[in-house]
C-alpha cells in the first residue's frame, strides 16, 4: 500500500506542475485500460493516456468495473503522460468471487515509452514499449492453484496506426501488441505455473469513430494457460466509447473472458469512466 500511496502523491505533485493539456484531437488518447495504462479496456495501446502533445503533459484518472457471470473486477487508477513520450500508470484491481464474496486484489505499475512514429500523421505507426509490474496482495488463491510467484513483470511492444479517412470515410485505428508475460488470469492467479512459464502473447484492437464523439471497436487478448489445475482462455470485447468533451470519456463493453478458475464462459458487461487533464 505504501508504494501505491507514494505513486499517488508523486503523481499529484507532478500534476500540480502541469497545465491542462488538450491539444490533440479528441479521442486520440483512447481510454484507460484495466492496467491503468492508456489503451482500450482489456489491453493497453501504443497511445499514451490524455491529450498531451510533445510540448505538454497530461494526467488521466479512471474507475472501471467488469461484471461477468461469477465474478466482478473493480479497477481504479491513474496515469501521467509526460510530453506524449513517457507514461507512468498505476491501478488497483479488486476481483470478487460472487459465490462467497472472497476478494483478490493486486496493484499494477506501468511505464510506457513512445519510441517511434505518430498515431495519425506520417507513414510510421506509433510504436511504444511498455513494462507492467504486478503485485498480488492476496496470494493465497494463487498458491493454492499452483502459481509459482505472487508478482511478475510483463514487457510489451505496441504499434498503433490511425487513418483520418479510413473505411467508410471514418477515422479508424488498428493496434497490435506483443507481450511477454507469466501472468495467470491477468496476474490475479499469480505468475508462472506448473505447465508453462513466460510466453509471448498477441493482443489486438480495432476502433472506428462513427462520429467525432462516438467510437466503436473490438479487442482481443491472447492469454497463456500455465496452470495444469485450471483452464485459461483468451479474452475479447466489443466496445462503444463516448467522448462528450476532451476531458471525459465513458466506455461500455461486452467482454468474454472464457473459463476463469473452473467457471466456464465468463461473459458480461464492462463500464469505464475516465477523466483527463
Amino acid at each position: 500500500m505504501q508504494v501505491y500511496l507514494k505513486i499517488v502523491v508523486t503523481s499529484i505533485l507532478l500534476l500540480s506542475s502541469l497545465a491542462i493539456a488538450d491539444t490533440r484531437i479528441k479521442g486520440t488518447g483512447g481510454v484507460s485500460s484495466i492496467s491503468g495504462s492508456g489503451g482500450g479496456g482489456i489491453i493497453p495501446w501504443a497511445t499514451l493516456g490524455g491529450l498531451a502533445t510533445q510540448d505538454q503533459s497530461s494526467m488521466t484518472g479512471f474507475i472501471s468495473r467488469a461484471d461477468v457471470d461469477d465474478f466482478t473486477l473493480d479497477v481504479k487508477g491513474l496515469a501521467v503522460n509526460l510530453n506524449n513520450r513517457v507514461e507512468f500508470s498505476l491501478a488497483r484491481q479488486d476481483f470478487t468471487i460472487k459465490a462467497n464474496d472472497a476478494q483478490i486484489s493486486q496493484n499494477k505499475y506501468g511505464l510506457k515509452v513512445k519510441v517511434a512514429g505518430d498515431l495519425i500523421f506520417g507513414q510510421l505507426p506509433q510504436v511504444s514499449v511498455g513494462i507492467e509490474g504486478n503485485s498480488l496482495r492476496d496470494p493465497e488463491t494463487a498458491r493454492a492453484v499452483g502459481a509459482r510467484d505472487d508478482d511478475g513483470i510483463d514487457v510489451y511492444v505496441s504499434a498503433a496506426k490511425a487513418w483520418i479517412d479510413g473505411p467508410f470515410h471514418r477515422t479508424s485505428m488498428l493496434n497490435l501488441n506483443v507481450r511477454s508475460t507469466r501472468a495467470n488470469q491477468f496476474g490475479l492467479l499469480g505468475y508462472g505455473g506448473d505447465d508453462q512459464d513466460r510466453q509471448l502473447m498477441i493482443e489486438a484492437a480495432a476502433a472506428m469513430f462513427v462520429t467525432r464523439s462516438l467510437a466503436i471497436g473490438i479487442e482481443y487478448r491472447q492469454k497463456a494457460d500455465n496452470l495444469s489445475a485450471l483452464i485459461e482462455e483468451d479474452a475479447s470485447d466489443v466496445f462503444i466509447a463516448w467522448f462528450p468533451n476532451k476531458h471525459l470519456s465513458l466506455t461500455a463493453a461486452y467482454v468474454r473472458l472464457g473459463d476463469i478458475a473452473g467457471a466456464p464462459n465468463q461473459n458480461g458487461f464492462y463500464f469505464s469512466l475516465q477523466g483527463a487533464l
Binding site: 495519425i120 500523421f121 487513418w163 483520418i164 479517412d165 479510413g166 467508410f168 470515410h169 471514418r170 477515422t171 462520429t211 467525432r212
Partner: peptide, 13 residues
C-alpha cells in the same frame, strides 16, 4: 458530411 470532412482533412494532414 463527416465522411467528406475526413477526406478533406486527410489531404490537408
Amino acid at each position: 458530411a463527416i465522411g467528406t470532412q475526413n477526406q478533406v482533412l486527410d489531404r490537408l494532414a
